[in-house]
Design a protein around this nucleic acid. Structure first.
Lengths: 363, 363
DNA sequence: TTGTAAGCGTTATCAT
DNA sequence: ATGATAACGCTTACAA
């Protein structure tokens, strides 16, 4: 209490030693810089943030002192003072799958440009992890905005988010009441199936995505719908046993192929896979079974995965990195005061014909 | 100033409207909860954190009120008060490559368990991004510890880190003066090459990793060294033109194969690739060139990439997720007061013989 | 068991 | 252009 009457120098020393005793807070504070530069903390704050109304002389001096002392502002302190953390959250059901890792990369590009940080919330495939996110931890006051990667949110979660009132956007899948950026999955799926139909295929199998999971993806469902609609429009039959379950991974594609080919009777001449990874799984497994692609079966995927070109995979491309980058830009623009910056947008997709599709062999 | 004499209820209202005026800080504060529960903020703090010395009656009441109001503590505020942010930083040169995305996943597993968050610093392959990390931004006061993924740090950076004095560990590569977890790259590389030698190969090519990049990886160098040592020990010649550059990606593997096979004269009968992705690139490109694996060339990689099994790739496996998980555990243990928890450790690797290696054909 | 109040390191509003 | 100083929301001795 007497401290406030002691000279600056001494005060600082006192505070420093207190700190050490508590074992916390290493590092120099704005006060240290102020003292060393012979100015007030206010001026230091202005100087280091590049704000106006600081003479270039003092600014220079302060900056010199600051770098000399190795000063970096405490994000907690400035966060508390401003109400902004300068970090956005990225919520992903997985991180090591193609779509998600690409999206994270894209988001990071924009964040880096705008000097924001990213905190990553990975659900790791477990629905249970969500609990932590939406209640237990203090996620919300830790981020200025949230980028949701390809997952639906429950109504409860949306409400919670609403209350927090931070900008939100979802990438890669439609979510009711939310702005979202992603390809038109119906159009993309249709394009893929239509390509097969145009090639003359009549017996087309489907390896679709899971929709039983608690991640309640919407994407798989609309790709399935697209398949059925195109088939019906073309007057082609579909068979339940030719619609195999998958979860977007290579392995599930392999398994789907095995199940498909172990079925008695006629084989399909083409397979539409809801993701490139599954398509690749199908192709690898076909090779093992001595089934030639595309001579015996045509295979088409969706994504244009990194490996697609090397494997000659015909696919419908999308660019998760660009989608996420754009979404992040919107989020940041919104935070910068541009109300309405966050909005829904359809990302481009494109049919890329390579070597895994061909007209069916008519034996 | 008169506010402090006004009743609690009114005070809150006043503060709230002030906040709205400033446009910031949505959300209920600890004071709101305290007021609503008729207790002090100290008690609320204790209650919500599960600290002792709170009667179960009041604790229940407080918790009820808290969830009712949707209270979550401000991480900025508690961070400022405690000096801990409850988040650790993960520094990665890339995020969408196999090793890194797996490692991130592993780290997250442990963080989730211990109720920590992750902020991801992606260098995106640019060395330039480093500048931001190690000076411009306030990274350091934002994280309690740092997990470095497979990159060397400059001496300057290490010094900086030292000053900050936060626990640090690197995964997947040796860095001087730092604790690190990763496979013994020399042993792993030797194991792979020796496998080729044991098979009877004498003409072995190398597709190594880049070491010219500013990320100054150490890993590629020691794998190259292992190659040379094993070859020399076996009395086998190596040829400079059979050592092709790569950067661990599929594409670079494809290019390396093309360069290798466009060379005049004798072809190698086996190729040791410093990563599975490069090995796969080699295999895809070989297929295009009509070169059969393993009849014409054997190919071995390192990693046991997700696609390795499906492709039948012989490799030396490692588990980046486990490595990162363990590293993270050490970091967190250290933060929990277990001095010395962070230490170097060798992660396991294992030769997995599949279908891409075989004895050379003696025509 | 509970409350009081002094920090924590910034930012921002006023003055000057 | 610069300086005091009151928040910001929480934690934690210390008192009660």
């Amino acid at each position: 209490m007497a401290r406030r009457f002691i000279s600056r120098r001494v005060t600082i020393v006192a505070r420093t030693s207190e700190r050490s005793l508590r074992g916390g807070h290493s590092g120099v504070s704005i006060e240290d810089v102020a003292a060393a530069a012979g100015v007030s903390t206010a001026t230091v704050s202005r100087a280091v943030r590049g704000l106006p109304n600081v003479s270039s002389a003092t600014r220079e001096k302060i900056l010199a002192v600051a770098t000399d002392l190795g000063y970096v502002a405490s994000s907690s302190a400035s966060g508390l003072a401003t109400g902004r953390t300068k970090t956005i959250g990225v919520l992903a059901p997985f991180v090591s799958r193609w779509f998600f890792s690409k999206a994270i990369e894209g988001a990071d590009r924009e964040l880096h440009l705008r000097n924001y940080n990213m905190t990553l919330f990975n659900l790791g495939g477990h629905g249970s992890n969500r609990v932590r996110l939406f209640s237990k931890t203090m996620v919300y006051k830790q981020i200025d905005a949230l980028l949701v990667l390809c997952m639906a949110l429950t109504h409860e979660e949306l409400e919670h988010l609403q209350k927090i009132d931070i900008p939100l956007i979802v990438v890669g899948g439609y979510v009711e009441e939310c702005s979202y950026i992603g390809i038109d999955d119906y159009a993309a799926g249709s394009l893929a199936v239509q390509h097969l139909v145009d090639l003359g295929h009549r017996d087309i199998a489907l390896v679709h995505g899971d929709n039983q999971t608690d991640l309640n993806f919407d994407v798989p469902r609309v790709r399935i719908l697209a398949f059925h609609d195109v088939m019906e429009r073309a007057g082609l039959p579909t068979r339940p046993e030719w619609e195999q379950w998958g979860d977007f991974t290579l392995l599930s594609g392999q398994e789907a192929f095995r199940r498909l080919w172990s079925l008695p009777g006629k084989k399909p001449t083409a397979i539409f896979c809801a993701s490139d990874e599954m398509a690749m799984g199908v192709i690898f497994e076909a090779a093992k079974a001595g089934v030639r692609v595309p001579q015996d079966v045509s295979v088409i995927g969706i994504d244009d995965h990194d490996f697609a070109e090397a494997m000659g995979l015909t696919t419908v491309s999308q660019h998760p990195d660009d989608q996420a980058e754009l979404a992040t830009r919107m989020l940041l623009d919104e935070l910068d005061g541009q109300a309405g910056a966050v909005r829904s947008l359809a990302a481009p997709h494109e049919l890329i014909v390579r070597g895994t599709t061909a007209p069916p062999c008519t034996p």
